[in-house]
Design a binder for these strands. Structure first.
Lengths: 222, 222
DNA sequence: TAGTTCGGAGAACGGTTGTTTACTGGATGA
DNA sequence: TCATCCAGTAAACAACCGTTCTCCGAACTA
Protein backbone atom coordinates (compact mmCIF):
# COMPACT_ATOMS: atom_id res chain seq x y z
CA UNK A 1 0.00 0.00 0.00
CA UNK A 2 2.50 2.57 1.10
CA UNK A 3 5.81 1.05 -0.06
CA UNK A 4 4.60 0.98 -3.62
CA UNK A 5 5.34 4.63 -4.48
CA UNK A 6 8.39 5.17 -6.61
CA UNK A 7 11.18 7.49 -5.64
CA UNK A 8 9.69 10.13 -7.85
CA UNK A 9 6.18 10.15 -6.39
CA UNK A 10 7.58 9.98 -2.90
CA UNK A 11 9.72 13.06 -3.48
CA UNK A 12 6.78 14.89 -5.02
CA UNK A 13 4.55 14.19 -2.04
CA UNK A 14 7.35 15.32 0.23
CA UNK A 15 7.62 18.68 -1.50
CA UNK A 16 3.86 19.01 -1.55
CA UNK A 17 3.75 18.43 2.17
CA UNK A 18 6.54 20.95 2.64
CA UNK A 19 4.44 23.50 0.78
CA UNK A 20 1.45 22.77 2.99
CA UNK A 21 3.54 23.02 6.15
CA UNK A 22 5.20 26.25 5.08
CA UNK A 23 1.85 27.80 4.17
CA UNK A 24 0.29 26.72 7.45
CA UNK A 25 3.13 28.31 9.34
CA UNK A 26 2.86 31.56 7.47
CA UNK A 27 -0.90 31.57 7.99
CA UNK A 28 -0.44 31.92 11.70
CA UNK A 29 -0.05 35.64 11.24
CA UNK A 30 -1.94 36.44 8.05
CA UNK A 31 -4.91 35.21 6.11
CA UNK A 32 -5.00 33.04 3.04
CA UNK A 33 -6.08 35.74 0.62
CA UNK A 34 -2.97 37.73 1.43
CA UNK A 35 -0.57 34.80 1.32
CA UNK A 36 1.67 34.88 -1.71
CA UNK A 37 2.83 32.00 -3.82
CA UNK A 38 6.43 33.22 -3.80
CA UNK A 39 6.30 33.64 -0.05
CA UNK A 40 5.53 29.98 0.41
CA UNK A 41 8.08 28.64 -2.06
CA UNK A 42 10.73 30.85 -0.51
CA UNK A 43 10.24 29.16 2.86
CA UNK A 44 10.34 25.69 1.30
CA UNK A 45 13.43 26.58 -0.67
CA UNK A 46 12.19 25.87 -4.19
CA UNK A 47 11.62 28.03 -7.23
CA UNK A 48 8.31 29.90 -7.41
CA UNK A 49 7.42 28.14 -10.63
CA UNK A 50 7.62 24.74 -8.95
CA UNK A 51 4.48 25.65 -7.05
CA UNK A 52 2.38 24.98 -10.14
CA UNK A 53 3.52 21.35 -10.18
CA UNK A 54 1.40 20.85 -7.07
CA UNK A 55 -1.39 23.42 -6.97
CA UNK A 56 -3.14 25.55 -9.55
CA UNK A 57 -3.26 28.48 -7.12
CA UNK A 58 -3.30 29.32 -3.41
CA UNK A 59 -7.00 28.54 -3.20
CA UNK A 60 -6.36 24.95 -4.14
CA UNK A 61 -3.63 24.71 -1.53
CA UNK A 62 -6.10 26.12 0.97
CA UNK A 63 -8.63 23.41 0.22
CA UNK A 64 -5.94 20.80 0.74
CA UNK A 65 -5.18 22.38 4.09
CA UNK A 66 -8.84 22.15 5.05
CA UNK A 67 -8.85 18.42 4.49
CA UNK A 68 -5.68 18.03 6.48
CA UNK A 69 -6.92 20.21 9.34
CA UNK A 70 -10.40 18.78 9.71
CA UNK A 71 -9.23 15.22 9.11
CA UNK A 72 -7.43 14.77 12.39
CA UNK A 73 -10.17 16.48 14.36
CA UNK A 74 -12.68 14.23 12.72
CA UNK A 75 -10.95 11.15 14.06
CA UNK A 76 -10.89 12.48 17.61
CA UNK A 77 -14.53 13.46 17.76
CA UNK A 78 -15.50 10.14 16.29
CA UNK A 79 -13.72 8.55 19.22
CA UNK A 80 -15.63 10.73 21.67
CA UNK A 81 -18.97 9.91 20.12
CA UNK A 82 -18.24 6.20 20.39
CA UNK A 83 -17.90 6.43 24.18
CA UNK A 84 -20.81 5.47 26.39
CA UNK A 85 -20.14 7.46 29.54
CA UNK A 86 -22.73 9.36 31.47
CA UNK A 87 -23.41 12.93 30.37
CA UNK A 88 -21.21 14.56 32.99
CA UNK A 89 -18.09 12.55 32.33
CA UNK A 90 -18.61 12.73 28.62
CA UNK A 91 -18.63 16.51 28.72
CA UNK A 92 -15.40 16.58 30.67
CA UNK A 93 -13.83 14.09 28.27
CA UNK A 94 -14.98 16.08 25.26
CA UNK A 95 -13.57 19.36 26.46
CA UNK A 96 -10.34 17.65 27.48
CA UNK A 97 -9.96 16.19 24.02
CA UNK A 98 -10.55 19.57 22.42
CA UNK A 99 -8.02 21.10 24.76
CA UNK A 100 -5.45 18.48 23.89
CA UNK A 101 -6.11 18.85 20.19
CA UNK A 102 -5.61 22.59 20.35
CA UNK A 103 -2.29 22.07 22.04
CA UNK A 104 -1.17 19.51 19.47
CA UNK A 105 -2.40 21.23 16.32
CA UNK A 106 -2.71 24.94 17.07
CA UNK A 107 -2.00 25.97 13.50
CA UNK A 108 -4.75 23.79 12.13
CA UNK A 109 -7.27 25.27 14.54
CA UNK A 110 -6.14 28.80 13.81
CA UNK A 111 -6.44 28.14 10.09
CA UNK A 112 -9.97 26.75 10.28
CA UNK A 113 -11.19 29.52 12.57
CA UNK A 114 -9.66 32.18 10.34
CA UNK A 115 -10.71 30.85 6.96
CA UNK A 116 -14.15 29.65 7.95
CA UNK A 117 -15.39 33.12 7.06
CA UNK A 118 -12.28 34.14 5.16
CA UNK A 119 -11.85 35.74 1.80
CA UNK A 120 -11.45 32.65 -0.38
CA UNK A 121 -14.75 31.17 -1.48
CA UNK A 122 -13.49 27.68 -2.31
CA UNK A 123 -11.92 27.34 1.12
CA UNK A 124 -15.03 28.64 2.89
CA UNK A 125 -17.13 26.10 1.09
CA UNK A 126 -14.70 23.29 1.85
CA UNK A 127 -14.81 24.11 5.55
CA UNK A 128 -18.59 24.45 5.54
CA UNK A 129 -18.88 21.10 3.85
CA UNK A 130 -16.61 19.36 6.33
CA UNK A 131 -18.39 20.90 9.31
CA UNK A 132 -21.68 19.83 7.83
CA UNK A 133 -20.60 16.19 7.51
CA UNK A 134 -19.35 16.65 11.02
CA UNK A 135 -22.72 17.77 12.34
CA UNK A 136 -24.32 14.94 10.41
CA UNK A 137 -22.23 12.39 12.30
CA UNK A 138 -22.90 14.02 15.62
CA UNK A 139 -26.62 14.03 14.84
CA UNK A 140 -26.53 10.33 14.03
CA UNK A 141 -24.76 9.61 17.31
CA UNK A 142 -27.18 11.74 19.30
CA UNK A 143 -30.16 10.10 17.68
CA UNK A 144 -29.10 6.66 18.82
CA UNK A 145 -28.97 7.79 22.43
CA UNK A 146 -31.92 7.16 24.79
CA UNK A 147 -32.11 10.85 25.60
CA UNK A 148 -33.23 11.55 22.05
CA UNK A 149 -36.27 9.32 22.16
CA UNK A 150 -39.25 11.02 20.63
CA UNK A 151 -37.17 13.82 19.13
CA UNK A 152 -37.83 15.05 15.65
CA UNK A 153 -34.92 14.66 13.27
CA UNK A 154 -34.85 18.37 12.73
CA UNK A 155 -34.43 19.02 16.42
CA UNK A 156 -31.66 16.45 16.72
CA UNK A 157 -29.89 18.17 13.88
CA UNK A 158 -30.41 21.53 15.56
CA UNK A 159 -28.79 20.19 18.71
CA UNK A 160 -25.92 18.63 16.78
CA UNK A 161 -25.10 21.95 15.16
CA UNK A 162 -25.21 23.61 18.53
CA UNK A 163 -22.64 21.12 19.81
CA UNK A 164 -20.34 21.32 16.79
CA UNK A 165 -20.43 25.07 16.84
CA UNK A 166 -19.57 25.07 20.51
CA UNK A 167 -16.57 22.83 19.94
CA UNK A 168 -15.17 25.03 17.19
CA UNK A 169 -15.78 28.17 19.22
CA UNK A 170 -14.16 26.65 22.28
CA UNK A 171 -11.11 25.60 20.30
CA UNK A 172 -10.70 29.08 18.85
CA UNK A 173 -11.20 30.69 22.25
CA UNK A 174 -8.59 28.40 23.77
CA UNK A 175 -6.12 29.44 21.12
CA UNK A 176 -6.75 33.12 21.75
CA UNK A 177 -6.45 32.58 25.48
CA UNK A 178 -3.08 30.90 25.17
CA UNK A 179 -1.71 33.48 22.81
CA UNK A 180 -2.34 36.61 24.82
CA UNK A 181 -0.50 34.99 27.64
CA UNK A 182 -2.83 35.71 30.55
CA UNK A 183 -2.10 33.10 33.16
CA UNK A 184 -5.42 31.44 33.94
CA UNK A 185 -7.17 32.45 30.73
CA UNK A 186 -7.08 29.00 29.15
CA UNK A 187 -8.35 27.41 32.33
CA UNK A 188 -11.25 29.80 32.49
CA UNK A 189 -12.20 29.04 28.91
CA UNK A 190 -12.19 25.33 29.68
CA UNK A 191 -14.28 25.72 32.81
CA UNK A 192 -16.73 28.05 31.10
CA UNK A 193 -17.03 25.77 28.11
CA UNK A 194 -17.80 22.78 30.32
CA UNK A 195 -20.63 24.66 31.98
CA UNK A 196 -22.05 25.80 28.69
CA UNK A 197 -22.12 22.22 27.49
CA UNK A 198 -23.77 21.20 30.75
CA UNK A 199 -26.42 23.84 30.36
CA UNK A 200 -27.11 22.63 26.86
CA UNK A 201 -27.23 19.09 28.16
CA UNK A 202 -29.80 20.13 30.76
CA UNK A 203 -31.83 21.89 28.13
CA UNK A 204 -31.75 18.74 26.11
CA UNK A 205 -32.99 16.63 29.00
CA UNK A 206 -35.99 18.91 29.59
CA UNK A 207 -36.68 19.72 25.97
CA UNK A 208 -39.62 17.42 25.41
CA UNK A 209 -41.47 18.08 28.63
CA UNK A 210 -41.14 21.79 28.07
CA UNK A 211 -42.20 21.69 24.46
CA UNK A 212 -45.19 19.41 25.09
CA UNK A 213 -48.30 20.41 23.24
CA UNK A 214 -46.51 22.75 20.88
CA UNK A 215 -45.62 20.09 18.38
CA UNK A 216 -47.89 21.41 15.66
CA UNK A 217 -46.44 24.88 15.33
CA UNK A 218 -44.81 26.01 12.14
CA UNK A 219 -46.30 23.07 10.30
CA UNK A 220 -46.13 23.26 6.54
CA UNK A 221 -43.05 25.43 6.46
CA UNK A 222 -40.22 22.90 6.20
CA UNK B 1 -22.98 70.34 18.31
CA UNK B 2 -23.15 69.30 14.71
CA UNK B 3 -23.41 72.63 12.92
CA UNK B 4 -20.21 73.77 14.47
CA UNK B 5 -17.84 72.02 12.07
CA UNK B 6 -16.25 74.23 9.49
CA UNK B 7 -16.40 73.51 5.80
CA UNK B 8 -12.94 72.03 6.05
CA UNK B 9 -13.61 69.52 8.82
CA UNK B 10 -16.90 68.56 7.23
CA UNK B 11 -15.20 67.74 3.95
CA UNK B 12 -12.52 65.78 5.74
CA UNK B 13 -15.07 63.64 7.55
CA UNK B 14 -16.85 63.10 4.28
CA UNK B 15 -13.79 61.63 2.56
CA UNK B 16 -12.96 59.67 5.64
CA UNK B 17 -16.41 58.11 5.52
CA UNK B 18 -15.97 57.51 1.80
CA UNK B 19 -12.77 55.60 2.58
CA UNK B 20 -14.57 53.50 5.17
CA UNK B 21 -17.45 52.78 2.80
CA UNK B 22 -15.16 51.88 -0.07
CA UNK B 23 -13.10 49.58 2.13
CA UNK B 24 -16.20 47.91 3.52
CA UNK B 25 -17.44 47.25 0.02
CA UNK B 26 -14.16 45.76 -1.12
CA UNK B 27 -14.03 43.62 2.01
CA UNK B 28 -17.09 41.74 0.90
CA UNK B 29 -14.87 39.55 -1.24
CA UNK B 30 -11.49 39.65 0.44
CA UNK B 31 -9.99 40.00 3.86
CA UNK B 32 -8.46 43.02 5.48
CA UNK B 33 -4.88 41.80 5.41
CA UNK B 34 -5.03 41.56 1.63
CA UNK B 35 -6.78 44.87 1.08
CA UNK B 36 -4.49 47.48 -0.43
CA UNK B 37 -4.34 51.16 0.35
CA UNK B 38 -4.28 52.06 -3.33
CA UNK B 39 -7.22 49.82 -3.99
CA UNK B 40 -9.35 51.79 -1.56
CA UNK B 41 -8.30 55.23 -2.69
CA UNK B 42 -8.89 54.21 -6.31
CA UNK B 43 -12.54 53.47 -5.53
CA UNK B 44 -12.98 56.72 -3.64
CA UNK B 45 -11.33 58.65 -6.43
CA UNK B 46 -8.52 60.34 -4.51
CA UNK B 47 -4.76 60.06 -4.67
CA UNK B 48 -3.15 57.18 -2.76
CA UNK B 49 -1.18 59.56 -0.61
CA UNK B 50 -4.33 61.24 0.66
CA UNK B 51 -5.03 58.06 2.61
CA UNK B 52 -2.42 59.06 5.17
CA UNK B 53 -4.37 62.19 6.02
CA UNK B 54 -6.95 59.91 7.66
CA UNK B 55 -5.32 56.66 8.72
CA UNK B 56 -1.79 55.57 9.51
CA UNK B 57 -2.37 52.22 7.79
CA UNK B 58 -5.10 49.73 6.87
CA UNK B 59 -5.12 48.31 10.36
CA UNK B 60 -6.21 51.65 11.77
CA UNK B 61 -8.97 51.87 9.18
CA UNK B 62 -10.02 48.38 10.22
CA UNK B 63 -10.36 49.39 13.84
CA UNK B 64 -12.52 52.33 12.80
CA UNK B 65 -14.70 49.90 10.85
CA UNK B 66 -15.08 47.75 13.95
CA UNK B 67 -16.48 50.65 15.91
CA UNK B 68 -18.85 51.50 13.12
CA UNK B 69 -20.00 47.90 12.66
CA UNK B 70 -20.51 46.99 16.29
CA UNK B 71 -21.96 50.34 17.16
CA UNK B 72 -25.26 49.93 15.38
CA UNK B 73 -25.66 46.37 16.55
CA UNK B 74 -25.02 47.52 20.07
CA UNK B 75 -27.96 49.85 19.94
CA UNK B 76 -30.33 47.20 18.70
CA UNK B 77 -29.42 44.58 21.27
CA UNK B 78 -29.68 47.16 24.00
CA UNK B 79 -33.25 47.69 22.86
CA UNK B 80 -33.95 43.98 23.02
CA UNK B 81 -32.54 43.66 26.51
CA UNK B 82 -34.74 46.46 27.73
CA UNK B 83 -37.89 44.60 26.75
CA UNK B 84 -39.83 42.72 29.38
CA UNK B 85 -41.61 40.08 27.36
CA UNK B 86 -41.91 36.46 28.32
CA UNK B 87 -39.07 34.17 27.26
CA UNK B 88 -40.83 32.82 24.19
CA UNK B 89 -41.74 36.13 22.63
CA UNK B 90 -38.40 37.59 23.54
CA UNK B 91 -36.59 34.88 21.63
CA UNK B 92 -38.71 35.46 18.57
CA UNK B 93 -38.16 39.20 18.82
CA UNK B 94 -34.41 38.74 19.24
CA UNK B 95 -34.00 36.53 16.21
CA UNK B 96 -36.21 38.84 14.17
CA UNK B 97 -34.05 41.81 15.08
CA UNK B 98 -30.90 39.93 14.14
CA UNK B 99 -32.50 38.96 10.86
CA UNK B 100 -33.46 42.53 10.12
CA UNK B 101 -30.05 43.80 11.05
CA UNK B 102 -28.36 41.33 8.72
CA UNK B 103 -30.55 42.53 5.90
CA UNK B 104 -29.83 46.17 6.62
CA UNK B 105 -26.10 45.93 7.26
CA UNK B 106 -24.84 42.80 5.54
CA UNK B 107 -21.38 44.23 4.95
CA UNK B 108 -20.89 45.07 8.60
CA UNK B 109 -21.83 41.56 9.64
CA UNK B 110 -19.59 40.02 7.02
CA UNK B 111 -16.73 42.20 8.15
CA UNK B 112 -17.04 41.29 11.82
CA UNK B 113 -17.43 37.58 11.13
CA UNK B 114 -14.41 37.61 8.82
CA UNK B 115 -12.04 39.71 10.86
CA UNK B 116 -12.98 38.32 14.25
CA UNK B 117 -10.29 35.71 13.70
CA UNK B 118 -8.63 37.51 10.81
CA UNK B 119 -5.02 38.31 10.12
CA UNK B 120 -4.78 41.77 11.67
CA UNK B 121 -4.10 41.70 15.38
CA UNK B 122 -5.33 45.21 16.21
CA UNK B 123 -8.67 44.51 14.54
CA UNK B 124 -9.05 41.15 16.24
CA UNK B 125 -8.47 42.78 19.60
CA UNK B 126 -10.90 45.59 18.83
CA UNK B 127 -13.61 43.10 17.96
CA UNK B 128 -12.87 40.96 20.99
CA UNK B 129 -13.06 44.04 23.18
CA UNK B 130 -16.40 45.15 21.77
CA UNK B 131 -17.89 41.68 22.07
CA UNK B 132 -16.66 41.53 25.63
CA UNK B 133 -18.39 44.77 26.58
CA UNK B 134 -21.33 43.33 24.78
CA UNK B 135 -21.38 40.17 26.88
CA UNK B 136 -20.93 42.34 29.94
CA UNK B 137 -24.12 44.22 29.18
CA UNK B 138 -26.04 41.06 28.45
CA UNK B 139 -24.82 39.60 31.72
CA UNK B 140 -26.00 42.66 33.62
CA UNK B 141 -29.42 42.40 32.01
CA UNK B 142 -29.68 38.69 32.70
CA UNK B 143 -28.68 39.16 36.29
CA UNK B 144 -31.55 41.52 36.96
CA UNK B 145 -34.07 38.98 35.75
CA UNK B 146 -35.94 36.78 38.25
CA UNK B 147 -34.75 33.67 36.40
CA UNK B 148 -31.21 34.39 37.53
CA UNK B 149 -31.96 34.39 41.23
CA UNK B 150 -29.35 32.48 43.14
CA UNK B 151 -26.98 32.30 40.18
CA UNK B 152 -23.29 32.86 40.61
CA UNK B 153 -21.89 35.80 38.70
CA UNK B 154 -19.58 33.48 36.84
CA UNK B 155 -22.47 31.39 35.62
CA UNK B 156 -24.44 34.44 34.52
CA UNK B 157 -21.42 35.53 32.55
CA UNK B 158 -21.09 32.06 31.06
CA UNK B 159 -24.68 32.23 29.90
CA UNK B 160 -24.26 35.73 28.51
CA UNK B 161 -21.34 34.63 26.38
CA UNK B 162 -23.35 31.71 25.14
CA UNK B 163 -26.09 34.10 24.02
CA UNK B 164 -23.77 36.63 22.40
CA UNK B 165 -21.90 33.93 20.60
CA UNK B 166 -25.16 32.52 19.34
CA UNK B 167 -26.24 35.88 17.98
CA UNK B 168 -23.00 36.42 16.09
CA UNK B 169 -23.06 32.88 14.74
CA UNK B 170 -26.68 33.22 13.66
CA UNK B 171 -25.98 36.48 11.89
CA UNK B 172 -23.06 34.97 9.99
CA UNK B 173 -25.07 31.88 9.12
CA UNK B 174 -27.90 34.03 7.82
CA UNK B 175 -25.50 35.87 5.59
CA UNK B 176 -24.08 32.66 4.17
CA UNK B 177 -27.57 31.31 3.66
CA UNK B 178 -28.65 34.33 1.67
CA UNK B 179 -25.55 34.40 -0.46
CA UNK B 180 -25.57 30.85 -1.78
CA UNK B 181 -29.09 31.48 -2.95
CA UNK B 182 -30.82 28.33 -1.75
CA UNK B 183 -34.49 29.19 -1.46
CA UNK B 184 -35.48 28.33 2.10
CA UNK B 185 -31.98 28.39 3.55
CA UNK B 186 -32.38 31.65 5.44
CA UNK B 187 -35.71 30.54 6.86
CA UNK B 188 -34.22 27.32 8.10
CA UNK B 189 -31.41 29.18 9.82
CA UNK B 190 -33.94 31.41 11.56
CA UNK B 191 -36.10 28.52 12.69
CA UNK B 192 -33.12 26.51 13.86
CA UNK B 193 -31.67 29.47 15.70
CA UNK B 194 -34.93 30.08 17.52
CA UNK B 195 -34.99 26.51 18.74
CA UNK B 196 -31.40 26.66 19.86
CA UNK B 197 -32.16 29.73 21.91
CA UNK B 198 -35.20 27.99 23.35
CA UNK B 199 -33.14 24.99 24.33
CA UNK B 200 -30.66 27.26 26.04
CA UNK B 201 -33.52 29.04 27.75
CA UNK B 202 -34.85 25.71 29.02
CA UNK B 203 -31.41 24.77 30.25
CA UNK B 204 -31.29 28.05 32.08
CA UNK B 205 -34.61 27.44 33.76
CA UNK B 206 -33.53 24.06 35.08
CA UNK B 207 -29.92 24.95 35.80
CA UNK B 208 -30.15 25.38 39.55
CA UNK B 209 -32.31 22.37 40.32
CA UNK B 210 -30.02 20.22 38.25
CA UNK B 211 -26.83 21.53 39.75
CA UNK B 212 -28.11 21.31 43.35
CA UNK B 213 -25.56 19.94 45.77
CA UNK B 214 -22.64 20.41 43.42
CA UNK B 215 -21.94 23.98 44.36
CA UNK B 216 -18.59 23.26 45.93
CA UNK B 217 -16.88 21.71 42.94
CA UNK B 218 -13.84 23.28 41.43
CA UNK B 219 -13.35 25.41 44.50
CA UNK B 220 -10.10 27.30 44.66
CA UNK B 221 -9.48 27.35 40.97
CA UNK B 222 -10.83 30.70 39.88
C1' DT C 1 20.38 0.53 -22.74
C1' DA C 2 17.54 4.10 -25.22
C1' DG C 3 13.71 6.99 -25.02
C1' DT C 4 10.24 9.26 -22.34
C1' DT C 5 8.34 11.51 -18.43
C1' DC C 6 8.19 15.22 -15.27
C1' DG C 7 9.59 17.91 -10.85
C1' DG C 8 12.18 21.68 -10.52
C1' DA C 9 15.36 25.83 -12.08
C1' DG C 10 16.06 30.21 -14.25
C1' DA C 11 15.12 34.36 -16.58
C1' DA C 12 12.13 37.58 -17.99
C1' DC C 13 7.35 40.00 -18.43
C1' DG C 14 4.07 43.66 -17.15
C1' DG C 15 1.80 45.18 -13.34
C1' DT C 16 0.93 46.50 -8.52
C1' DT C 17 2.27 47.68 -4.00
C1' DG C 18 3.51 51.09 0.22
C1' DT C 19 5.95 55.16 1.10
C1' DT C 20 8.69 59.61 0.46
C1' DT C 21 9.19 64.11 -0.98
C1' DA C 22 7.73 68.47 -2.74
C1' DC C 23 3.93 71.12 -4.17
C1' DT C 24 -0.96 73.46 -4.83
C1' DG C 25 -4.98 76.02 -3.64
C1' DG C 26 -8.94 76.87 -0.99
C1' DA C 27 -10.68 77.34 3.88
C1' DT C 28 -9.28 79.61 8.14
C1' DG C 29 -8.55 83.03 11.70
C1' DA C 30 -6.32 87.48 13.14
C1' DT D 1 -6.95 91.66 3.71
C1' DC D 2 -3.09 88.70 4.48
C1' DA D 3 -0.39 85.07 6.42
C1' DT D 4 -1.19 80.31 7.97
C1' DC D 5 -2.97 75.78 7.80
C1' DC D 6 -3.82 71.47 5.72
C1' DA D 7 -6.58 68.04 2.65
C1' DG D 8 -5.43 66.44 -1.51
C1' DT D 9 -2.01 66.10 -5.76
C1' DA D 10 1.78 64.43 -8.55
C1' DA D 11 5.98 62.04 -9.50
C1' DA D 12 9.22 58.87 -8.42
C1' DC D 13 11.17 54.95 -5.66
C1' DA D 14 12.54 50.19 -4.86
C1' DA D 15 10.32 45.99 -3.81
C1' DC D 16 7.35 42.53 -4.75
C1' DC D 17 3.82 40.01 -7.18
C1' DG D 18 1.71 36.00 -10.45
C1' DT D 19 2.56 33.92 -14.66
C1' DT D 20 4.83 32.40 -19.11
C1' DC D 21 8.31 30.11 -21.53
C1' DT D 22 12.47 27.39 -22.01
C1' DC D 23 15.53 24.22 -20.37
C1' DC D 24 17.87 20.49 -17.33
C1' DG D 25 18.65 16.07 -15.33
C1' DA D 26 17.22 12.33 -12.61
C1' DA D 27 13.68 8.86 -12.32
C1' DC D 28 10.90 6.08 -14.96
C1' DT D 29 9.48 2.44 -18.74
C1' DA D 30 10.08 -0.75 -22.28
Amino acid sequence: MSHSLGVRQAQKQKTRQALLDAALGLLEEQSLSSLGLREVTRVVGIAPTAFYRHFRDMGELGVALVEEALGSLHVMVRAILAEQDAAEERIDRTVAVVEQHVRQHPLHIRFVARERHGGVRAVRQAIAGELDRFAQEVAAALKSQPASEGWRDEDVRMLAELYVDRLVTTAAALLDAEEDGAEGAAGQVVRRSRRQLRLISIGRRHWREDRRGEGEEERGEG
